[in-house]
Amino acid sequence: MSILSKALFQLPVQLPRQARSYRRFWLPISAFILLSISVSTATLLLWQRSQANDDVLQADSPDIHPTAIPWLTSEWSCEQAGKYWEDEVCWDREHSPEF
Results as ranks from 00 to 15, higher is better:
2 S>G: 04
2 S>Y: 09
3 I>N: 10
5 S>D: 03
7 A>I: 14
9 F>A: 13
9 F>I: 06
11 L>V: 10
12 P>F: 04
14 Q>G: 04
15 L>P: 02
16 P>W: 11
18 Q>I: 06
19 A>G: 07
19 A>D: 10
20 R>K: 13
20 R>E: 14
20 R>V: 14
21 S>K: 09
22 Y>D: 14
22 Y>M: 15
22 Y>V: 11
22 Y>A: 09
22 Y>W: 13
23 R>G: 13
24 R>W: 12
24 R>M: 04
27 L>T: 07
27 L>H: 12
28 P>Q: 02
29 I>D: 07
30 S>Q: 12
31 A>M: 15
32 F>W: 09
32 F>H: 12
34 L>M: 14
34 L>G: 08
36 S>C: 08
36 S>P: 02
36 S>L: 11
37 I>Y: 05
38 S>K: 06
39 V>L: 06
40 S>G: 08
40 S>F: 14
40 S>Q: 14
42 A>N: 03
43 T>D: 06
43 T>C: 10
44 L>F: 02
45 L>A: 15
45 L>E: 12
47 W>F: 08
48 Q>S: 04
49 R>W: 13
50 S>D: 12
51 Q>C: 09
53 N>T: 15
55 D>Y: 14
55 D>V: 13
56 V>E: 12
56 V>R: 12
57 L>Q: 09
57 L>M: 14
58 Q>K: 11
58 Q>V: 15
59 A>Y: 12
59 A>G: 06
60 D>Y: 06
62 P>H: 01
62 P>M: 04
62 P>Q: 08
62 P>Y: 03
62 P>V: 02
65 H>A: 04
65 H>I: 10
66 P>H: 03
66 P>L: 07
67 T>M: 06
67 T>Y: 07
68 A>V: 15
68 A>W: 04
68 A>P: 03
69 I>E: 00
70 P>C: 07
71 W>E: 02
73 T>K: 02
74 S>V: 10
75 E>L: 01
80 Q>S: 04
80 Q>C: 03
82 G>Q: 01
84 Y>R: 01
85 W>G: 00
86 E>N: 06
86 E>I: 07
90 C>Q: 00
91 W>V: 00
92 D>F: 00
92 D>S: 00
92 D>K: 00
93 R>C: 03
95 H>R: 05
96 S>A: 03
96 S>T: 05
97 P>T: 02
